[in-house]
Amino acid sequence: MDAHAVLIQPFVEFGFMRRALVACLALSVGSGPVGVLLVLRRMSLVGDALGHAVLPGAAIGFMIAGLSLVVMSLGGFIAGLVVATLSGVVARVTPQREDASFAAFYLISLALGVLIVSTHGSNVDLVHVLFGTILAVDDASLLLVVSIATLTLFTLAVIGRGLIVECFDPGFLRAVGGPGAVVHFVFLTLVVMNLVAGFHALGTLMAVGLMMLPAAVARFWAGEVATLAAASSAIAFASGYAGLLLSYHADLPSGPAIILVAGGVYMVSVVAGPRGSLWARFMPRQHLEA
């Protein structure tokens, strides 16, 4: 078996593999920078919380219109935004911090979602919503995922400076009268949008995987916001490609295969990445003159 047959042939031969690969590319381009900003804002777990918060909306969408892409996406998007807004409002109006309010609202949302799915759908539906089916991505879903990636990049280009300042020095942004709250909310909207894009492919449980894992990996390889974002997207796409091949050849479910590849890259980076890894810590190179 030659390299071409292993690495390229599956995508030439099967339309569903090609569509899955393009979906991975679009997800990576959008989620990469978003994930990096979440990590920099110390909101890694907020991504996770929002990922689960999408569930009841998608489930209600499913109840209303069956397996309709548009309705389920819209439902998920609304549910995610509601949780993000309520958490944000509680964090800004009361002394409670945002991580705690996020935990509270996403748990309510998740429980509600499981309740709806288990009383109104079959187990197959639950599996679909929880785990996604990247190999069943159709043209409509693909268009949605690609549109979200495009919108994400444009929005980040517009609010980038505000996001970075709000994250690095929120006091300064407040002092110069910058729109910190607006920027924060637009960013959370982007997070939810990208999670909705991800859940068709990877399900609500793992949609956040392609957002956070590559971003966490990037911290061991790059040192500036722009290079971090590029590294994160590249790592996400490489994981998607390798994960799809793994799932094809070894007959494994594609979602977990992709995330596990990304997880493997993370483990390797923690041990041997060039910046701040265990290797750099325990195998120090000779110190410099100045």
Binding site: L40, I159, R161, G162, I164, V165, C167, F168, D169, G171, F172, V176, G178, P179, V183, G223, E224, V225, L228
Partner: peptide, 23 residues
Amino acid sequence: IDRSFPISVIDTVLLGHWRTIGL
């Protein structure tokens, strides 16, 4: 201020122009 944030010295100083450059 998050002093571990990956931003350069010049970018930090340039924020002082906020009144004219804004968002």
